[in-house]
Design a protein around this nucleic acid. Structure first.
Lengths: 152, 152
DNA sequence: GCTAAAATGATATGTTGTAACATATCGCCA
DNA sequence: TGGCGATATGTTACAACATATCATTTTAGC
């Protein structure tokens, strides 16, 4: 696990490279999400930041900041859970395949893995046959992680 | 497209076969969802039933009824959209594969198709390798349907 | 018909997210 | 360097989705 500072530094360089600004608030929100090491709802993230940094950010601001971070591909929104998670690949520079998110129902830990091209091609073929076209090529699956599964 | 009555009749037989009751309210909610031919939120379903049957069902009841219908596998909840849709296979009796839902972002039309076992096995293998275990083997994908795609 | 269980109703509230408008901050260039 | 437009953040109100809790009605079985 890399340090938060390293990740933030990468994120800042990434933003600067095309004229976007990773302001202090935005850094704080992103740091919170990285530190939490799991998926948080916007309101959980507010509480986490309040506790961790002692500063209360209004809900509206958090939503706006999350939107910015999503556009910068530093954060992903998990629509299944209505939660947000830091991108697992902020410090890599390579282009990514279709992301697949495994969300633990119990502890909200998230694993971000990649679907192989062949599997994705099969899915896409199914979809086109049904007369639909894929818009958001992101898969989210309800799972239980190993540690939660063995704990119970 | 089969008639609603036929589908409801199947649903009723299915419930009776193991002692569950498809009450008039439950029939009404299921009928509404079938008639609408698309995914509806609980509140949209309330409005639809009010308009179609002239009877207003409280939100709480609709949620309870939807929960019952889900347990009976007559209705699916689409977590991506926070909407509910009638199962496309109420009148078939065969066991079903993993359902895959294609949701049109624009008109909320839903196509329920099946993932082939081989594709699903590939996904499951990825998941187990990441130390997670699949809980809800249902895939939901954000799509756009053919008619919405050509309309614009 | 009586009773326990199941279903439904009513009310309040929790949770997620956005609209609309006000204020503050930043970056540029005259 | 100071003012102006653009960007970012704050504030308030509210919409949409969902559940908790307790009251009432309906049903099935004796």
């Amino acid at each position: 696990m890399q340090s938060v500072d390293t990740i933030i530094e990468h994120a800042e360089r990434h933003c600067k490279s095309h004229g976007a600004r990773l302001t202090p608030k935005r850094k704080q929100v992103l740091s919170g999400l990285i530190l939490s090491e799991k998926a948080l709802s916007a309101y959980e993230l507010i509480d986490f930041c309040k506790e961790k940094f002692g500063e209360s950010i209004p809900a509206m601001s958090v939503y706006r900041i999350l939107e910015f971070l999503e556009e910068e591909r530093l954060v992903h929104k998990l629509n299944l859970a209505n939660k947000y998670v830091a991108c697992a690949h902020i410090t890599c520079s390579h282009a990514h395949e279709v992301p697949q998110f495994l969300i633990c129902n119990q502890c909200n830990k998230v694993e971000e893995i990649n679907i192989s091209k062949s599997t994705m091609d099969e899915l896409k073929e199914n979809i086109e046959q049904a007369g639909f076209h894929l818009v958001s090529p992101q898969l989210e699956m309800n799972c239980i992680c190993h540690s939660c599964a063995t704990r119970n």
